[in-house]
Design a protein around this nucleic acid. Structure first.
Length: 150
DNA sequence: CGAATGATCCGA
DNA sequence: CGGATCATTCGA
């Protein structure tokens, strides 16, 4: 798949982040080395996949919120549209948390750059409590069918 | 809009 | 321990 929507989460400075109140068993990967996965279970039925993106001991990760299928014709264009659906389509669960994404079963690779005119930067969505950060830490490809919100 | 559905975390 | 919470999704 091709990633078309992501959101950034930091640590102590980001009230909306799972890492806001320090490390726990669940959020430990967020405080570990970059390039690993952080997968968690929400709402009793969905998993969400993150890529840890800051150096060890500094919390920071990127939530994968949307993707477009690129292999397998006839794929539902919206099968990866949303963090819960993306994790489900990839078959990822908490069993896949804290895995090395560079040299492991999963791999994230560089792709031809998306023209910057098609990249939109906005505020994060789906956040409840906390004065949700007003920082524009959500990035997505304009018009993609793989977005969590069409 | 609200239900589904269960792990997690904090406060007591 | 108990209950409030939740970075979601789907269907009325």
């Amino acid at each position: 798949m091709r990633l078309v929507e992501v959101e950034a989460y930091l640590g102590a400075s980001d009230p909306a982040s799972h890492a806001y109140r320090g490390p726990t068993a669940r959020t430990a990967p967020m405080f570990g080395p970059p390039g690993r996965s952080y997968v968690y279970f929400v709402y009793g039925m969905y998993y969400c996949v993150n890529v840890v993106a800051s150096r060890s001991s500094v919390a920071g990760a990127v939530l994968l919120r949307g993707g477009e299928p690129i292999e397998g014709v006839g794929d539902d264009a919206r099968a990866l549209a949303g963090p819960g659906k993306l994790a489900r389509a990839l078959g990822l669960t908490t069993a896949h948390t804290n895995l090395d994404l560079v040299r492991s079963v999963l791999s994230i690779r560089e792709a031809p750059p998306v023209p910057s005119a098609r990249v939109v930067r906005s505020v994060r969505i789906g956040l409840n409590q906390h004065a949700t950060t007003h920082e524009p830490w959500r990035f997505y490809v304009r018009g993609s069918p793989g977005l969590s919100r069409p």
